[in-house]
Design a protein around this nucleic acid. Structure first.
Lengths: 165, 165
DNA sequence: GAAATTTATTTCAAGCATAAAATATTTGGG
DNA sequence: CCCAAATATTTTATGCTTGAAATAAATTTC
């Protein structure tokens, strides 16, 4: 683990920043640029092809993985978004007939959300198309670069997981 | 340039996807995960330390680079967001006294947005602190990994720039 | 030079996202 | 049992974001 993050070069004036710091900032700005570009492309395709949105796709994806359904709180922590946010997205998906809320035995506070049959069918189709879009948007990414990218980003992610010190 | 993106292995059933396609999807999901995590951390810091937001920071950053100011349309294309979006953010920054709108000579449709003196001063301070936050969040990222990341993401970005075919 | 088109910006409606407050229910002492 | 604390979820207020429509001014075309 890098422990140098707060150590300053004594030769450096306090209003300047190190080269490594600038390299990391550039890396972050590049991540941001790519993720916004790709997200924008995917959002547009979702809207035009399916009349839907990425957040709804994400909720359905999480539920597709756990066929028994999930609680609202499980959903919001799996997707790393706020509780209130999930409430709204689930509401819309219920209206569309993609999801149902099922009461939980012995806990009247909670409810479990599940894909309907229609929701499952729709998602299965959309997921395949979605993977095709992503593969096309990333068609210049070789297998080895994909692996390198994943490795590097995992290190970054794990460093920032939980442990708010 | 990879031209294979639409070629399917004839041995593969049409409802399955290739390994490279799955690797690219994993890479994309990892990018998304990291960028959301980091963006969340930075948003919180911005709010707590400066009572401000990332979109406002981004607008001020763009204007800091071009001291003569920018038109609304220049701003929105530099930040790659919609015109209407910029209108709202600029409105708030004007209210805060960070920005001014200056009419353009010979074109009464347009206006130029500039940082005020206070805006310039505030941004200079915030930018340094911001760089420190980023460097800390990415403190596990070595110089060589930062370079590798930037190189890989640049290829992805350039492939998706403009040329909507 | 009037009409049609293009360009620059704003407004609008809808959805996404957060933080904080509110509501409802369950659980854990005393 | 009662009540305080914890838990699950929704509601509210605010801001960001988009796409589309509206407004206004400049440019082009006839």
């Amino acid at each position: 683990m890098n422990m140098d993050k707060t150590v300053r070069d004594p030769d450096m004036p306090p209003n300047e920043t190190s080269d490594i710091s600038k390299a990391r900032l550039r890396a972050w700005l590049q991540i941001l640029k790519v993720s916004r570009k790709i997200e924008g492309e995917l959002r547009e395709k979702m809207r035009l092809e399916f009349g839907s949105t990425l957040p709804r796709f994400d909720v359905m994806a999480a539920l597709y993985r756990s066929r028994d359904g999930m609680r609202m709180s499980e959903l919001s922590s799996a997707l790393m978004v706020s509780n209130g946010n999930v409430t709204g997205i689930v509401d819309r998906l219920v209206t569309e007939g993609m999801l149902v809320r099922v009461p939980v035995e012995n806990d009247r506070r909670a409810s479990i959300v599940r894909l309907t049959e229609a929701g499952e069918k729709d998602f299965a189709e959309r997921a395949l198309v979605h993977e095709g879009w992503v593969s096309e948007l990333f068609s210049d990414l070789s297998a080895s670069d994909a692996d390198a990218l994943i490795r590097i980003l995992r290190t970054v992610y794990h460093h920032n997981e939980a442990h708010h010190d």
